[in-house]
Amino acid sequence: MALPLVLLAVGSVVAGYVGVPHALGGSNSIETFLHPSFHPAAAHAPAVAGDHGPAAASEHGGPPETAPATTAAQHDAPAAGDHAAAGGHDDPDKARVELTLMGVSTVLALLGIGLAAFFFLQRPEAADAAARHFAPVHRLLLHKYYVDEAYDAALVHPLRDGSNRVLWKVVDAGLIDGAVNGTGHLVRESAGALRLLQTGSVRVYAASLSVGALLVLGYYLAR
């Protein structure tokens, strides 16, 4: 089990360098990941699509990658990524927010590590004592607040059974595919019925011919 954990640890140390925050003087190298989709030419699509739904309005709430596109559209900047990078440096407010977030999360992480070190390395018996002391709480925590069970009952089972019994077997196989195959059956049934007209008797054939002739001539006489 140790090797995968080591690999994960290495990864978690390295992964961060893909995007070092601007406040620390880094730049975001993953930002241009999908560059061709957001290059300047892309920016005028929403402008043209003014009549095309609430596209423009919704952009401001979009994920971070949308923001450069919007700003690019507004300021007609040469490249979206550079523009965003420049903005990050100039704005002291932004830097403060970034630093605060980094600080809080670092402190929380260190607290967690300290707690774990205390319970697992220094005083293992303290953990057992605490568990005995707060038995109901321990059980609740041990079962992860019963979230899994709640999920199972509320989501997983209804979704699985509903998909199986209703969506697949009734809607898909019954209704939709039934309609498709039903069309085929309809053709075959009517073929079976219509072929009965072909009795083999010359009289019937002559009658059919006469009826046809009467219909044609009747049409002309009736007008």
């Binding site: 059919s208 011919l209 046809g212 002739a213 001539l217 002309y220 006489l221």
Partner: peptide, 27 residues
């Protein structure tokens, strides 16, 4: 004229086995 048209039509329709003058065809 219309009757002439209709009668000729019936004659041709039989030869090209158009419905309902087609009954002879399968047999």
């Amino acid at each position: 004229v219309l009757l002439a048209l209709g009668l000729l039509l019936v004659g041709f329709a039989f030869k090209v086995s158009a419905v309902p003058f087609h009954m002879w065809t399968p047999d």
